[in-house]
Amino acid sequence: MTVTAEGVTNVEATKSGALEARAVSAWFGNHKVLENVNLFMPPQSVTALIGPSGCGKSTFLRILNRMHELVPIAQLSGEVLLDNEDIYAANVRATHTRARIGMVFQKPNPFPAMTIYENVLSGLKLTGTTVPNPDEVVETSLRQASLWNEVKDRLDSPGGALSGGQQQRLCIARSLAVQPDVLLMDEPCSALDPTSTRRVEETIHDIKQRVTVVIVTHNMQQAQRVSQQCAFFLAEENQPGYIVEAGLTTDIFGNPKDDRTNDYVNGRFG
């Protein structure tokens, strides 16, 4: 089974930040959770991963920046190409890949003991990168995450003292500060109020010019609002998850080929 996003020409694949999963399967111990997933995530656009809970979307996302292998019993097969190079190749360091492919988690996880300022720069510090103009990086990153106006007068207060929505945007700013090629977002708005959600969606819209975005979401309206491509994951009971259908978001929602996609995007199950 091969499902690739339609409407994507190969010309775009040469640009920085193209991500492609080829024949990816995944296991936790003996339990297979993903079966032969093929997906092209083109640069300068947003790809949404949708599907019911437990269908392997988050696992797939964590495979894309090598977070999956941190679980002791996790295994995978297939390859993930970032600009046509396999991130799981023997000569590629996981730390290097993760610095290029950032991740925003479902639960906001700023470093609570660090100040807002330090939080934004933490990625640079962790990877040993020195920048000549840290103040500028902080401001740019916070502006990109549309948090600057709210925190510019209290950059020295701890990151843990912000509200949930602000914390999540701080995490986005932190990820953007290292200038990744790809940003993975695992249900970034599921713990946020509607206003913060709107802010995060605006942020996604703004940053997709520079960064390839892959977002897992349970919110169909959100997928429609923010994404250009969409992949619908499904798993039958006790079976590994797979992609039912992938393509342009307008097609998935407006003219789905598979009945199950049609049922899901119209809220008839899941």
């Binding site: 920046n65 977070m67 290097h96 993760r98 988690f105 996880n109 470093f111 933490s122 962790l126 932190r174």
Partner: peptide, 26 residues
């Protein structure tokens, strides 16, 4: 917190850098 450890690792920290930034301060 697992989330903080993953946050550090997801930004490209090595295990030691993660320990130094997250585990030891905590």
């Amino acid at each position: 917190p697992q989330g903080e450890k993953e946050a550090a690792l997801a930004m490209g920290a090595t295990r030691w850098e993660m320990i130094r930034t997250v585990v030891l301060p905590f």
